[in-house]
Design a protein around this nucleic acid. Structure first.
Lengths: 212, 212
DNA sequence: GTCTATAATTTGATAGAC
DNA sequence: GTCTATCAAATTATAGAC
């Protein structure tokens, strides 16, 4: 390795874990990627599980934390949403495996009462957003909507295309560049879609046909 | 096992693979789940990889195939979308691990030129939807929008909440029942959100502030 | 067909020289 | 600290009795 071994191992492990997950990753592959010997992994990080746990927690905390700052800024509501979408997309274009990695490993956690999950529960991202939406509704700037559902709307529209990257590429026959182009265009499309929906006049309400 | 062993093994393997993925699954666990001996797994399915490949392909093909029928029905456009959302949600409430399983294993595929992926590429789901949207736009019943983006919008809104189940439960402090309730409510919310957006009057167009 | 026993291989982890 | 060599456990796969 060129840099110090601890850092080299961290970077290598992050790369391998993110692309193959905990159970799919091999210590030998991490060592090779880091350009050092397998024994050094254990010297610096004790075990595979400990190494993974540290990386996973850091990625998760960082990810959640990054989002909070946006909603405390002094931008307008739609600018906040736009900023949110932009930041998510920028993050995931730089590291496309991140969302699938996080969600997949979260789903594998035996106990969901671990510190990382607590950090999500205790974060005020949801509360911040809830207050923002309530205000917008009260002021009559957007339609009535459940803030939690709206939050999931925005996150879904933004994150899903990264989770489904191979499926989207296959269905739409996109090259790597074509996919990135699709995502770039999508940035604006998401904002417009959300804006249109929240600004819509009240017409006859869309009634759910009971099919089942 | 009570039923015939081949079927028992299939069901057990499906369950284990869906919850833990290929690399996380153990042949011993599958044998235990099926109530038979490990050697029988190999007798019926040769190897772990072959067993997995068969199950994965079946799940993927079935999943894609089920969706096509909706868009060839004689429902109205919004009823088709509603039906699509309902069917997806029903499928995933019955098998919540399915979406994460499919997307995760698709992302792990070394070569994305395998038959399963070809089946997606060659399916006409996208083309069917594209024509539907074009017609609606031409007839002036919905706003102008790229059909591909709209398709991903609808799928995102529907599928993401299942992919992010643990995160949503943690953030919103939901029990198992609370989560199901959230999803049920969401069914209507998605339809309304999409309907509102596609029906919105043209106002001043939402301009993307250049932040970066 | 189904089992027990075991082989063959992979893989996480450690001992010990330098 | 870093390496080579090796162990111990886990895991896929098979041989062979019944």
């Amino acid at each position: 390795m060129s840099k110090n071994p601890e850092k080299a191992i961290w970077d290598a492990a992050r790369k391998i874990f993110l692309s193959r997950g905990l159970s799919g990753a091999r210590m030998q592959d991490i060592a090779d990627e880091a350009g050092i010997n397998k024994a050094l992994l254990h010297y610096y990080y004790r075990s595979k599980d400990k190494l993974f746990a540290q990386i996973f927690e850091k990625e998760l905390v960082e990810f959640v934390f990054n989002l909070e700052s946006i909603f405390t800024s002094d931008l307008s509501f739609f600018e906040k949403i736009e900023r949110f979408v932009e930041q998510e997309i920028q993050t995931f274009l730089e590291c496309p495996e991140l969302p699938l990695f996080l969600l997949n490993e979260l789903a594998q956690q035996v106990s969901c009462s671990r510190s990382e999950v607590k950090c999500m529960h205790n974060n005020n991202l949801r509360l911040l957003f809830r207050e923002l939406v309530k205000t917008e509704i009260k002021e009559g700037r957007i339609k009535e909507i459940d803030p939690d559902q709206l939050f999931i709307h925005v996150v879904s529209l933004t994150v899903y295309p990264f989770l489904a990257k191979p499926m989207i590429q296959a269905m739409m026959d996109l090259s790597e560049d074509g996919y990135k182009e699709f995502i770039q265009v999508r940035k604006g499309e998401i904002c417009r879609f959300v804006y249109d929906s929240l600004s819509a006049e009240d017409k006859e309400k869309f009634s759910i046909t009971k099919i089942f």
